[in-house]
Amino acid sequence: MNHKLPQMTQPFLQYTGNETDIIFNKGIELPGFAAYPLMETADGAALLASYYDALVETAREVGAGVILDTFTWTANADRSAPIGYAGERLDTVNRKAVEFAAAAQARAGAVPTIVSGMVGPRADGYAPEMVMSAERAEAYHCRQIAIFAGGGVEMVNAFTIGYAEEAIGIVWAAGKLGLPVAISFTVETDGRLPTGGTLREAVEAVDAATDSAAAYFLVNCAHPDHAAKSWGEGAWMERVKGFVANASRCSHAELDNATELDDGDPRELGGQMAELARRFPHFTVFGGCCGTDLRHIAAIARQLPVAA
């Protein structure tokens, strides 16, 4: 099952850096690095909705589409329980997140949009001490993905995945529920996954175990200087469709310990992303992760060679 999605053939924007912007620029504490509790207050919901709407307006300006990811990167059993979300309460917030993204899609008008259920790693994506088998990963992530499927998402995006086995389990779970899935691996400053393997090894392992069932792959939560070390040539590279970049050149360990936000240079980041788009014409998904805000998204979008 190799699903075809509109972002596989035309430019789409994606933004996953909301949490760092909310914490450092908005001054709002996010226990457990979780944005989804904000949906439960009027002010919080308005803030989250503003990210969707601004992303859509930027896409409208440049003639791109938007992937509207649910705010559920940490909304799994292990990472949500310490902040009081477990069982039915966790299921409810995952359902609400899908409805929230669907409402943004309804507001988007003619801009092409995809509602995506966002899955994050079970443990710390930067230092995955818990390395599951693919079978355990499938069982673990199936509950959240089933809620997404029941809510009507159009696909699943798994972000900041640090090793192939967890990615394989997520692809299996999404496939059994009939959902297209994109896997986004994260890499360190040396261009390798946190567990030490190469991006090529991870992509090829996932495809081998799933009969190439993932719609495509991405890299996220890395600076272009670091991610570029992971790019290569060959059939496996054609499976990578884009990049959701960090603003900072800091390592994951440095980002974890940071007390101030390193937001880099939005225009420089946009230029680097445009260069990647020229180097890899098959890349169609571009966006911002840690340290980025809507300035970075605009700078990326406006400098892409595909911009209107």
Rank of each mutant, 00 (worst) to 15 (best):
Val98Trp: 04
Ala103Thr: 11
Pro121Met: 05
Ala81Tyr: 01
Pro82Cys: 04
Thr113Gly: 04
Val98Arg: 01
Glu88Arg: 13
Tyr85Leu: 02
Pro121Ile: 03
Asp69Ser: 14
Thr70Asn: 02
Ala110Thr: 14
Ala106Arg: 12
Asn76Asp: 02
Arg136Pro: 07
Ala134Pro: 13
Asn76Phe: 00
Pro112His: 09
Gly87Asp: 10
Ile114Cys: 04
Arg136His: 11
Gly125Phe: 10
Ala81Thr: 09
Ala104Met: 01
Ile114Asn: 02
Asp78Asn: 11
Ala104Trp: 00
Gln105Cys: 11
Gly63Ser: 05
Thr72Asp: 02
Pro121Asn: 04
Thr72Gln: 01
Ser116Tyr: 00
Met118Ala: 14
Asp69Gln: 13
Gly63Pro: 14
Ser80Gln: 08
Met130Trp: 12
Ile114Glu: 10
Ile83Trp: 07
Thr92Cys: 05
Ala108Glu: 06
Ala108Gly: 09
Ala101His: 07
Thr72Phe: 03
Ser133Ile: 04
Ala77His: 09
Asp78Arg: 15
Arg89His: 11
Ala106Val: 04
Glu135Met: 09
Ser80His: 06
Arg136Val: 07
Gly63Phe: 05
Tyr126Met: 08
Val131His: 08
Val111Arg: 06
Met118Pro: 00
Glu138Ile: 10
Arg95Leu: 02
Gln105Thr: 06
Val131Ala: 10
Arg107His: 11
Ala108Thr: 03
Pro112Cys: 11
Thr113Ile: 08
Glu129Arg: 05
Ala123Lys: 11
Thr74Lys: 15
Gly125Ile: 03
Val131Leu: 11
Pro121Glu: 06
Arg60Ser: 10
Phe100Asn: 05
Ile83Thr: 09
Arg122Tyr: 04
Phe100Gly: 03
Gly117Leu: 04
Arg89Asp: 14
Ala127Tyr: 14
Asp124Ile: 07
Pro82Ile: 04
Thr113Pro: 00
Glu135Pro: 10
Ala59Leu: 09
Phe100Met: 05
Ala81Trp: 02
Tyr126Leu: 00
Val62Lys: 13
Ala127Ile: 14
Ala102Glu: 10
Ala106Gln: 12
Val98Glu: 02
Arg95Trp: 02
Gln105His: 12
Ala97Cys: 10
Val131Gly: 06
